[in-house]
């Protein structure tokens, strides 16, 4: 490095001669930090999404990349285009990458037998079949064709459901539709709470 290069690499020189007069951006950057790239730079694509926590509905950009283990979420950031959130996220929204990539997430169906003291694994199709049998059984046991006056009820009191308020509208729609067709009426949601 020559003397002039050396002087030109001084932050104060760059601050005085460059565009960054306040010395809060480029002028203050070391070569090391200049070489750094945001983790979003490796993204293959960006999906538009919405924060899953509160009802403000802040818009998110989900950066997806891939490595040997497959695709993964690299980062989740606020989407500055949103007229609701203007790109901002609160601590929860900002932590949502951890929500979706953290090791707390279960990947396997688990089953606890009656009187059991441990979980055991179960494959998904088997679990769905077992469940279907149980649904029909509980429906039958709780079935009420009419009330005491003989008026039709056509329902079961044997099955109940309580849904969270992070379900999509489309999901809620199918939940209500299927359970209604089954005759189950105790179909509830966090919205009651």
């Amino acid at each position: 490095m020559g003397v002039s290069d050396w002087i030109r690499s001084w932050p104060v020189y760059r601050q005085l001669t460059g565009a960054d007069r306040l010395g809060r951006g480029d002028a203050a950057a070391s070569p090391k930090s200049r070489e750094r790239e945001p983790r979003t730079a490796d993204a293959d694509r960006v999906a538009a999404s919405v924060c899953p926590y509160c009802a403000v509905g802040c818009a998110q950009n989900v950066y997806v990349g891939s490595d040997d283990a497959g695709e993964r979420v690299l980062q989740i950031e606020g989407n500055p285009d949103s007229p609701v959130s203007r790109g901002r996220l609160c601590p929860k929204g900002s932590a949502s990458k951890q929500l979706v990539t953290g090791d707390h997430r279960e990947e396997r169906v688990l089953y606890r037998a009656p009187y059991g003291t441990e979980w055991q694994e179960l494959d998904l199709p088997t679990a769905m079949d077992m469940l279907a049998d149980r649904v029909l059984d509980a429906r039958r046991k709780g079935w009420q064709e009419t009330d005491a006056d003989g008026k039709p009820l056509r329902r079961t009191q044997g099955i109940a459901s309580l849904g969270g308020a992070t379900l999509d509208n489309e999901e809620n729609y199918l939940i209500k539709k299927l359970f209604t067709a089954l005759g189950a009426v105790q179909i509830e949601n966090q919205a009651r709470i």
């Binding site: 924060c51 926590y53 308020a165 379900l167 509208n169 966090q190 919205a191």
Partner: peptide, 17 residues
């Protein structure tokens, strides 16, 4: 001010008895 991402939706398209 509703508390959850789609609690409004859960009332509009209800899973409510």
């Amino acid at each position: 001010l509703r508390g959850h991402a789609s609690i409004q939706g859960s009332t509009d398209i209800p899973t409510l008895y």
